[in-house]
C-alpha cells in the first residue's frame, strides 16, 4: 500500500532551543485510504502531530512527507475538524461549509461561476451526515451534535485526500457520539478518504480505525502499533464482543504504563 503520510524520525521543539520538546523521534506511516487512530496519555504531542502533518508546524529535524511531497508549508489537501466546531455565527450552515472553497486555490476562482454545482455538493454532504434541509439554519440554531456534523461537512467539502480529526466527538454525549462514529465510518467507506483520528477514547479508536498508534508521554513518540482485526463494515454491536474489549483493555494498559513512565 502506498503511503499518503510518512513521518520519519521527527523532532519538534516549541519556543527555541531551550523550549519543550513536544515530540522526539516520531515515526509513523499511514497508507492511502487507511483509517489511523492515535491514542496516548494527555500531553503526548497529539496536537503537535496534527500540526506537523498539516504543515502548520515545520519540524526542527526529521522529514514529514504528505502525498509524495516534503511538507514545508501548509498542505491544502487536508480537511481538519476539532472538538470545537468553530462554525462562524454570521454565516448559515451552508455558507460555513462552503468556506474552504473560498480559500483553497483550486476552487476559489471557480466558486462564483460554479456556485450551483458546489451548493449541490454541500447539500449532498449534509444529507450524508443526516442534516438534510438544515443548510439555511445558522450554526447557533443547531445542537452540539448537529454542529459537529456540519463541521465534518466543512472538512470534506473540498474533497481532501486526508482528513485530520482532533477529538471531534469529545464534547458530545455518548449516544450522539456513537451516531457520529457511524457517520464517519460510512464517510470513510464511501469516499475512500484517508483519516487520522486523534482521540482519548479507546473504544472510539478501536471501533473506527484500521490501525492504532499508541504514543508515549512527552516527548511523544510511537510506542506501539496495533492492527485492528475486525472486519468491515463494522456494526456498533462489535463493541460488545470479547475481542473488542480485550483490545481496548490492552490499549488501556499500555497508556497507563506510558503515564507511569512519565
Amino acid at each position: 500500500m502506498p503511503h499518503l503520510v510518512s513521518i520519519d524520525n521527527v523532532d519538534m521543539r516549541y519556543g527555541g532551543a531551550a523550549g519543550t520538546l513536544a515530540v522526539s523521534g516520531l515515526t509513523m506511516k499511514v497508507g492511502k485510504g487507511e483509517f489511523a487512530a492515535v491514542v496516548g496519555p494527555s500531553g503526548c504531542g497529539k496536537s503537535t502531530l496534527m500540526k506537523l502533518v498539516t504543515g502548520l508546524h515545520i519540524p526542527q529535524s526529521g522529514v514529514v512527507i504528505v502525498a509524495d511531497k516534503h511538507v514545508t508549508k501548509p498542505v491544502s489537501i487536508v480537511g481538519m475538524a476539532f472538538q470545537n466546531p468553530t462554525m462562524l455565527p454570521w454565516r448559515t450552515t451552508l455558507d460555513n461549509i462552503l468556506l474552504p472553497l473560498e480559500i483553497v486555490e483550486r476552487h476559489r476562482h471557480r466558486l462564483r461561476a460554479n456556485k450551483r454545482e458546489y451548493v449541490e455538493k454541500a447539500e449532498h454532504l449534509l444529507e450524508t451526515v443526516g442534516l438534510k434541509g438544515f443548510g439555511s439554519k445558522f450554526p447557533w440554531q443547531l445542537s452540539g451534535g448537529m454542529q459537529q456534523r456540519a463541521n465534518l461537512c466543512r472538512a470534506l467539502i473540498h474533497e481532501p485526500e486526508l482528513l485530520m480529526l482532533d477529538e471531534p466527538f469529545g464534547a458530545l454525549d455518548a449516544f450522539t457520539r456513537e451516531e457520529l462514529w457511524c457517520v464517519i465510518r460510512d464517510l470513510h467507506a464511501a469516499q475512500g478518504v484517508t483519516i487520522i483520528l486523534v482521540t482519548h477514547d479507546l473504544r472510539e479508536a478501536t471501533f473506527l480505525a484500521d490501525r492504532i498508534f499508541v504514543m508515549s508521554a512527552r516527548p511523544g513518540k510511537v510506542l506501539k502499533e496495533h492492527t485492528v482485526p475486525f472486519a468491515r463494515p463494522r456494526d456498533l454491536e462489535v463493541m460488545y464482543e470479547k475481542g473488542f474489549n480485550d483490545m481496548v483493555h490492552e490499549l488501556h494498559g499500555e497508556i497507563a504504563s506510558a503515564r507511569v513512565v512519565a
Binding site: L56, P74, P100, V104
Partner: peptide, 14 residues
C-alpha cells in the same frame, strides 16, 4: 479569533 479557526483555514492555504 479562535486558534482552531485559524488553523483550519491556514491548513487550507489561507
Amino acid at each position: 479569533i479562535e486558534p482552531e479557526t485559524e488553523d483550519v483555514l491556514r491548513a487550507l492555504g489561507a
